[in-house]
Computed example of a mutant assay.
Amino acid sequence: MGTHLITGAGSGIGAAVAERLAERGEQLWLLARDAKRAAQLRERFPGSNTLIGDLGTPDRLSWALGQQTQPVELDSLLHIAGVVQLGTVGDLTTKVWNETLAVNLIAPAELTRLFLPTLRVSRGQVVFVNSGSGLAAHPEWGPYAASKHGLRALADALRGEEHGNGVRVTSVYPGRTATAMQQRVRSQEGLAYDADAYIAPESVAAAVLTALDLPRDAEITDLTVRPGR
């Protein structure tokens, strides 16, 4: 039985991954932005542990986590939480850029730094659930795509740095997935939302678990998941 720390477990892909791991009897540590959210996660995933930390303020994560009991063993750190705000470069303010980069890029970097010592001991794995926007940027997706391109660079750098320590690093690039975030995106685009038109979160979760379950003689570095219909 492994121990896994997950961000974004409250909905979408993060919830699907947490559910699959919980079904297997794995030990879950779930990051929540506040105490109310933490209680909701513990109710949804009985037997899980929670940590409270706001990804929107990554410079405070070290202090916040330092006040709480943390896992002594960790087999994987799964970065799945994210935010998106569409708009043109000519219209979006620094507030949007700062918020997007904080949650999608800087917080994952900081969490990884904080938990690397534990991951090294267990020769664990870091999984970044990225996005198709981490491979190509499109109009009105500037801040989100920039954060995801940065996340790809973070993963690539980390992989080279930690290979000798036995820490595996995987980036997963899902296409549009049927999540609450996708609903918000479609609303921002002024278009209808049809869950059947997108990848199911459970399918992306299956890809994540494939990377986790791969025998130790190999490593999935980059995994792209696209709609099959």
Score class of each variant (00 low, 15 high):
90 G>P: 00
90 G>I: 04
91 D>C: 00
92 L>I: 02
92 L>V: 02
92 L>G: 05
94 T>C: 01
94 T>N: 08
95 K>Y: 00
95 K>E: 14
95 K>H: 08
96 V>L: 00
96 V>T: 12
96 V>W: 00
97 W>L: 02
98 N>S: 07
99 E>V: 00
99 E>L: 02
100 T>V: 09
100 T>C: 04
101 L>R: 01
102 A>S: 14
103 V>S: 06
103 V>D: 05
104 N>C: 05
104 N>P: 03
104 N>Y: 11
104 N>S: 06
105 L>C: 07
105 L>M: 09
106 I>Q: 08
106 I>C: 05
106 I>F: 10
107 A>P: 10
107 A>Y: 12
109 A>I: 09
109 A>V: 08
110 E>R: 15
112 T>P: 07
113 R>A: 14
114 L>R: 09
116 L>W: 02
116 L>K: 11
116 L>H: 05
116 L>P: 12
116 L>Q: 12
117 P>Y: 06
117 P>M: 09
117 P>A: 13
118 T>Y: 11
119 L>R: 07
119 L>Y: 10
120 R>Y: 11
121 V>C: 11
121 V>D: 13
121 V>F: 11
123 R>W: 02
123 R>N: 14
123 R>M: 13
123 R>H: 15
124 G>P: 06
124 G>D: 03
125 Q>W: 06
126 V>K: 04
127 V>P: 08
127 V>A: 05
127 V>I: 15
129 V>R: 01
130 N>H: 01
131 S>F: 01
133 S>L: 07
133 S>G: 06
134 G>K: 05
134 G>Y: 08
134 G>D: 01
134 G>M: 07
134 G>N: 04
135 L>M: 06
136 A>Y: 06
137 A>D: 02
137 A>E: 07
138 H>P: 00
139 P>A: 08
139 P>Q: 03
139 P>L: 09
142 G>A: 14
144 Y>L: 05
144 Y>G: 02
145 A>C: 08
148 K>H: 08
149 H>N: 01
149 H>A: 06
150 G>F: 09
151 L>I: 07
151 L>S: 03
152 R>G: 09
152 R>Y: 09
153 A>D: 08
154 L>E: 13
154 L>S: 12
154 L>N: 13
155 A>P: 04
156 D>F: 06
158 L>S: 12
160 G>R: 13
160 G>F: 11
160 G>L: 14
162 E>P: 04
162 E>K: 10
162 E>Y: 09
163 H>Q: 15
167 V>D: 13
167 V>F: 12
168 R>N: 12
168 R>F: 12
168 R>A: 15
169 V>L: 09
170 T>V: 09
171 S>R: 01
172 V>D: 03
172 V>E: 03
172 V>F: 05
173 Y>T: 11
173 Y>W: 04
173 Y>I: 11
174 P>E: 07
176 R>C: 00
177 T>A: 07
177 T>N: 10
180 A>F: 00
180 A>D: 14
181 M>A: 02
181 M>N: 02
182 Q>S: 10
